[in-house]
Amino acid sequence: MTKRKTDEVTGVETTGHNWDGIEELNNPLPRWWLWTLYLTIIWAIGYTIAYPAWPMISGATKGVLGWSTRANVAAEIAAHEGSNAALVAQLVSADMPTLPQDPDLNRYAIARGGAVFRSNCSQCHGSGAAGAKGYPNLLDDDWLWGGDIAQIMYTVRHGIRNTIDADALYSAMPAFGDILEPAEIDAVVEHVVSLSNPEFDAALAEAGAVVFADNCSVCHGEAALGDRTMGAPNLADAIWLYGGDRETLRYTVEFSRFGVMPPWGPRLKEADIRAVSAYVHSLGGGE
């Protein structure tokens, strides 16, 4: 048995709920509100028939409209590709070195290339393209194989030192640990350090210069400025792919390095290769 209470002023029954002496009146709801509730229930039933809703043992009911988020995404991507078809066609047939002269196409290529880069390249080169030890920084002005748009496109398409693409850029540095004496290695390391670091042992570096001329200059050049035709890095500049300290350099000379990049030709569309190349070219080091 509940005890009914009535509000004195209005004569309306209260719910008995009391907040700081204020009681809630139990006024009837408007009837249209009830209709609205029924309407929402009917709507909900129709909705669960039309759209995926009821959980089954595996999956859920599909709904008579056949609506699905996956299909929507596919349709949106197709619509997007469709709306950009003209730009894509232009990009695929564009003369890449003169691309910046067409601001709209250039902007599209760089925006598209940024997306391609973030999903395919950032795993090694970093989301900001700053690289990491062994993975080149693409923001600076130093290139192993060349930084003009044609060379970047070639590198993206065929990759480096991979076994998948016969046209991949290839070179291999010998592991000098089997060729040189430890003292010779110490000397050549000191010589390489002396090229970019003012603090070095002059006598040792002088001895190293001879070792360098005999063993390294074939690829790296007599002045150690590198050779892009075989991906030999410039050893006289401030940029080091693996590190410019003596210990790292000794490791590099002794065991060599063999950085690999996969070919993206088989994996990316032509427009994507061109776009990502344009993007990399626009990051600050493009030649």
């Binding site: 970093g126 989301s127 900001g128 700053a130 920084n137 923001l139 600076d140 002005d141 130093d142 970019s196 410039n234 500049d237 401030a238 940029i239 600050g284």
Partner: peptide, 18 residues
């Protein structure tokens, strides 16, 4: 300011911000 990376070292040792 592009802070990924915070700065870029160029081949001649110059420091660049983007």
């Amino acid at each position: 300011p592009v802070r990924n990376p915070t700065f870029v070292v160029l081949s001649d040792g110059d420091v660049r911000n983007i």
